[in-house]
Amino acid sequence: MTVSSQVKQTLAGLKNCHSTLRIYAVQTQDQETRNVYEEALDTTNEIIKNLEERLKAIEFQEPRYKGN
């Protein structure tokens, strides 16, 4: 089982990327570029959701990692 703090770090990094991608998606004027950024947004969203589920599962199985 992976340490939950590591997963949390990755999750935070991904959320960071997600918001930067959103800024670029909104700022771009070219439609093609915007589509690529929005696709990236969707993918990172999915991954973030998956990671959050995994985090819940970890915290459920190992209560001492809960919190923080």
Partner: peptide, 15 residues
């Protein structure tokens, strides 16, 4: 941004 995404990718592979 690119570097961050790459890092997340390698983290996931590691996990």
């Amino acid at each position: 941004l690119y570097a961050n995404l790459e890092k997340s990718h390698s983290d996931l592979l590691g996990y």
